[in-house]
Design a protein around this nucleic acid. Structure first.
Length: 557
RNA sequence: GCGCCGGUAGCUCAGUGGACAGAGCGGCUGCCUUCUAAGCAGCGGGUCGGAGGUUCGAGUCCUCCCCGGCGCGCCA
């Protein structure tokens, strides 16, 4: 990669200049950034500014010394000192031609880094199987999925996991609700508990169970009947959730059941370990976790006085289970309403002897839905909430995923269904996809005209000298850096923005430069440029889980 | 009260301590006999919530304050 090459060059310069600068053994980190303006060259570094204080000389002077010691490189045309002491590097255009050839050689793997040997588990969605997924889960799903993909591209070994609570009070209420609906369908007296689940989907679940088992479950002993209906209902609900996620392009390597932590004794073991480490104690018949040792404002219950473990106890057991599987990092994707639990989970990690920094919680803010500016209520009780399935039906997976990744996780997200649905430039997803489709169309056109694309090493790429051609090449060259940045910051929204930028560069090029002409040399070079741009767009969209259509219908306004 | 997240153009939001702060939408003006006008170009639009501080350099880091969202159960 060009960045590595330049960084090494600067490091060598630093070495050669170290005596003159009176530099000790410590070397500063060399930061290299793409210059935003042409006058500042292609890349620049602030290393002289960082160094100035340390060696007690003016930054510009340090920069001069560095430039003087910079070794020759065939890709570097010249280096300049600018502003307060930046070193700007001006490259020969050839470097972009090298990038173009690299894209062609690597295809779908362009932008992906070498394996790092590090592993991460991304746990996301993790909705309880008590009802259908909605827009909030969709944001969770898409953030987790994109972080997983992007980290994979950055060289991590990644496992995606869904954790579901199939034990506890909410599930009991759910079971009671399914039972009530089942009995109702049989014409027997029954009522869904007030604080139970009243949605019509519960009736559908009960109907499904009725079709499979007939009346057989109705006459079981009450306790067994309740348990069976809970189990059957939850299994069906989870099946429906999986089907929705499949439509949404979200796949998991594992589904993890909370119940197994109870049944295996892992929760009891977790509490034992915490007690042994001095972070769990008995109080008023319950067992408490010493959360105050980790900055929490009060200690938290692990085992209630009635003997039932809390969700937090299960979280601790699950944490142990995750670490025992050998991951270097554990990422949790949580809605902002759970931010209060962050301190506790990290505290538990430390209490159990793990590195709390290995536990990363990615929080995202809420989504508010509107339709043409009007708020769409999301109340389960009022029955006005839209399910993720309905949203996919209405706006499609591509538009929904892209839209949900447009903002940083920390920003609340306003989604207007009319806008997401609109196939226009209100909608960045179509803008990007259109870029891909347009390029595909050009390539089809060329082939229909009988233009044979020659091998890239036989094509003179130096004819790509138009401003928009150079800009497009520069945009393509940024892909690897953008991917590693998005992965490092756990910020997939960076890639939707990059995708838009890349598409914009293409659209400008398209407007300025005709690709297929009588000028064979230019046609060949531009076709390769198109092929590379198309590959870059495809690679970004793939990371975002958005499709790249070969063609899009033109709609005249 | 304590904690977390926001406050940047009319609206929705980007911006990992760097050079004159950006995009989309909305408004106005141009560009289709040519590979898709779902496109492109141009114009207008800013006390980066406020006040201090750190730094060669602050939208970005620190402190305090103001406004908004969320969380602080032996609920899940």
């Amino acid at each position: 990669m060009i960045e590595d090459r330049l960084t090494n060059l600067l490091r060598d310069a630093l070495e050669l200049a170290s005596r003159e600068l009176g530099l000790q053994d410590d070397r500063p980190v060399i930061e290299l950034t793409r210059s935003r303006q042409k006058e500042h060259g292609d890349f620049s570094t602030n290393v002289a500014l960082v160094l100035a204080g340390r060696v007690g000389r003016p930054p510009r002077e340090v920069a001069e010394v560095l430039v003087r010691h910079l070794p020759e490189d065939e890709l570097v045309a010249r280096a300049e000192v600018a502003g307060p002491g930046f070193v700007n590097l001006f490259l020969r255009e050839r470097w972009l031609h090298d990038v173009l050839r690299e894209v062609v050689a690597r295809g779908p793997t362009f932008g992906r880094a070498e394996p790092t040997g590090r592993s991460v588990q991304v746990e996301h969605v993790s909705a309880n199987p008590t009802g259908p997924l909605h827009i909030g889960h969709a944001r969770n799903a898409v953030i987790g999925d994109a972080i997983a993909s992007v980290m994979e591209a950055a060289g991590w070994r990644v496992e995606r996991e869904y954790y579901f609570n199939d034990a506890g009070r909410q599930m009991d209420l759910f079971g009671a609700s399914v039972e009530a609906r089942y009995l109702e369908l049989l014409g027997r007296p029954a009522e869904v508990p007030d604080d139970g689940y009243h949605g019509s989907y519960v009736i559908d679940l009960a109907r499904g169970i009725l079709e499979t088992f007939g009346e057989a479950l109705a006459d079981l002993p009450p306790e067994e009947r309740r348990a069976r209906l809970l189990h059957e209902g939850a299994a069906r609900m989870l099946g429906m959730i999986k089907a929705t996620l499949e439509r949404f392009g979200v796949r998991f390597d594992a589904y993890f059941s909370e119940r197994t932590l109870h049944d295996s004794g892992e929760i009891a073991e977790a509490v034992r370990r915490l007690r042994e480490a001095g972070y769990a104690y008995d109080h008023e018949g319950a067992v408490f976790f010493r959360a105050t040792a980790f900055g929490d404002d009060k200690d938290r219950v692990l085992i209630r006085s009635n003997g039932a473990p809390t969700y937090f106890a299960a979280d601790c057991a699950y944490l142990i289970d995750k670490f025992s599987r050998g991951f270097d990092r554990l990422i949790y994707v949580w809605g902002a309403d759970h931010h209060g639990d962050v301190l506790r989970v990290k505290g538990a990690a430390r209490a159990l002897g793990y590195d709390p920094d290995a536990v990363e919680i990615v929080l995202y803010q809420w989504v508010s839905l509107t339709r043409g500016g009007e708020a769409v209520g999301m109340s389960k009780r009022a029955g006005t909430f839209l399910t993720l399935d309905e949203l996919i039906d209405e706006v499609g997976t591509d538009a929904l995923r892209f839209t949900l990744l447009l903002r940083s996780n920390d920003a609340p997200l306003e989604v207007d269904l009319e806008e997401v649905k609109r196939r226009s430039m209100d909608n960045p997803v179509f803008y990007v996809q259109y870029g891909y489709a347009r390029i595909s169309s050009i390539l089809r056109h060329a082939s229909a005209r009988g233009v044979a694309l020659r091998p890239i090493h036989e094509v003179d790429l130096s004819v790509l000298d138009h401003e928009t051609e150079v800009d497009l090449l520069g945009g393509i060259a940024e892909l690897p850096g953008r991917v590693s940045e998005a992965a490092e910051l756990r910020a997939p929204h960076r890639l939707t923005h990059y995708a838009q930028d890349l598409a914009a560069r293409f659209h400008r090029f398209y407007t300025e430069c005709r690709v297929v002409t009588d000028d064979d040399a230019r046609t060949q070079a531009r076709l390769w440029l198109c092929a590379a741009a198309r590959q870059a767009i495809a690679n970004v969209l793939a990371l975002l889980g958005v499709s790249a259509p070969e063609s899009m219908e033109r709609v005249d306004a």
